[in-house]
């Protein structure tokens, strides 16, 4: 089939299409879709069978069907809560409007809705907290990492401190952070909740280290020749950092950032459980204390949500890395 004398239009279209999709291989694609799907189906089956065998004081262990049912009920609960919140404010407005009509001098007051946070609210709280904590950690870790990587003496001075604090569990930090935040963060009209600040700093303290270390290593290992180029050009320090140091260190920096974000997410859930700070961790703990027949199913929903969010966060970081990185050929998984 070397001499192609006749090209059918359909075949031609297929050819250009496959060229467009840059060596798109249908078999490869099928395999790459089929295998994960098979894995998930087998897992669901094993889970279903296994869950039925485990009996707890709160009933059998939740299987996939319970999880689907509970996630529906959690979603409906969320909708209902939103609806009653809307109605609550509506009632107040109506009442205020009526009183204003009677007495024009009356200044209306609006009471805030006293309802409890739903699963969705807790998820949003956790997401906001993890991103804020991670952002603070990155803003501290990247410049410090660059500084440490640039100077061998700074590195030698700071290294023992990093090595000691790196393995500290969030649970050890939590009481200290809580006490310090209560003592220091005093304000009549706080912009953020104390619990938010506590969770945020616990996350920051634990997720600082991978970014810091990786950035420092990336900066310290810049190609000697590139440093020589910079010296021959006599680049001013700031240009040197901007044009040579940061681009060289970006791959390592992102490796660190991804590890940091993963840690941040794990740490946050644990901190929320322990400190009873709003978020998914608190949701899990409350359900556990609640001990209704639905609790285990709801906890399982939270577990899956935690996993999916963690996965999504990592994918987003990977996409960011690919967008920022100059080395498109390097394998990034």
């Amino acid at each position: 089939m070397t001499a192609q004398t006749f090209t059918h239009p359909w075949r031609k279209l297929k050819l250009t299409l496959s060229h467009r999709l840059a060596d798109f291989n249908p078999t490869q694609w099928l395999i790459s879709m089929l295998l994960p799907a098979t894995g998930i189906v087998i897992f669901l089956m094993l889970w279903h069978v296994g869950a039925g065998q485990i009996n707890t004081s709160l009933g059998t262990f939740p299987g996939p069907l319970d999880v689907v049912e509970q996630s529906q009920s959690l979603w409906e609960g969320h909708q209902a809560e939103r609806e009653s919140e809307r109605a609550f404010y509506q009632r107040q407005e109506d009442r205020n409007a009526a009183r204003m009509a009677d007495d024009p001098g009356y200044t209306p007051t609006i009471h805030s809705y006293p309802g409890k946070a739903t699963f969705i609210d807790q998820t949003v709280t956790s997401l906001v907290t993890v991103l804020a904590g991670f952002l603070v950690a990155s803003v501290i870790a990247i410049p410090c990492g660059i500084l440490i990587g640039l100077s061998r003496s700074t590195y030698l001075a700071v290294n023992p401190i990093i090595q000691i604090f790196k393995p500290v569990s969030p649970l050890a930090w939590l009481p200290l952070v809580t006490m310090v935040v209560s003592a220091v963060y005093v304000s009549d009209d706080p912009m953020f909740e104390k619990s938010f600040i506590t969770s945020l700093f616990t996350v920051t303290l634990c997720s600082l280290w991978p970014t810091l270390i990786n950035t420092a290593v990336g900066v310290a290992n810049i190609d000697r020749d590139l440093l020589n180029v910079s010296k021959v050009l006599r680049l001013p320090t700031f240009t040197h950092i901007r044009k040579i140091v940061i681009p060289s260190a970006i791959p390592m920096m992102f490796t660190g950032l991804r590890v940091s974000l993963g840690i941040a997410w794990m740490v946050l859930i644990a901190a929320e459980m322990l400190a009873q700070n709003p978020g998914l961790g608190k949701f899990v703990w409350d359900e556990f204390q609640n001990g209704s027949s639905n609790s285990l199913g709801r906890i399982m929903v939270a577990v899956l949500a935690i996993g999916l969010i963690g996965y999504a966060l990592d994918r987003i970081m990977l996409m960011l890395q690919q967008a920022v990185s100059w080395d498109k050929t390097s394998e990034q998984r």
Binding site: D223, L226, N228, V229, V232, L233, R234, K243, W326, D327
Partner: peptide, 29 residues
Amino acid sequence: NEPGPERAVVFQNHSLLPWLSAWENVELA
């Protein structure tokens, strides 16, 4: 006693900044 652009060097393995295009590499200098 220190490096400077009046003594330009072409290094043994080109030493271009991989994140800059040919144009940008020359532009930096």
